[in-house]
């Protein structure tokens, strides 16, 4: 079975954590009809979700880390 690079896993975990926290903040603020709730929703919840989404995009778009490449065993010719 194909494995997933460890750096991708770490970034996905962090992205997942940020998105989850952001969504929880958004959900909680929706139960509170107050101008401060709107600010928390937008500037805390929205920011966490956006950061998580961007980190996810970065994780899937970034190439494999060079140090992982260098850990490969040298081939016969090398």
């Amino acid at each position: 079975m194909t494995t997933v690079a460890p750096h991708l896993v770490r970034r996905l975990q962090l992205a997942g954590l940020l998105v989850t926290l952001g969504l929880i903040v958004e959900l909680v603020t929706l139960h509170w009809a107050h101008p401060t709730a709107f600010l928390f929703f937008l500037f805390l919840g929205g920011l966490l979700v956006t950061a998580g989404v961007l980190l996810y995009l970065f994780a899937i778009a970034s190439p494999a880390q060079p140090e992982l490449e260098s850990r490969r065993p040298p081939d016969a010719a090398g």
Binding site: G22, G45, V53
Partner: peptide, 22 residues
């Protein structure tokens, strides 16, 4: 879906709900 589509959809829907609240 879990890390891109749904979070952005929920943030958009939540913003609309907040606007209604206000």
């Amino acid at each position: 879906v879990a890390l891109f589509f749904l979070p952005l959809l929920l943030t958009g829907l939540g913003t609309a709900a907040q606007m209604e609240h206000s």
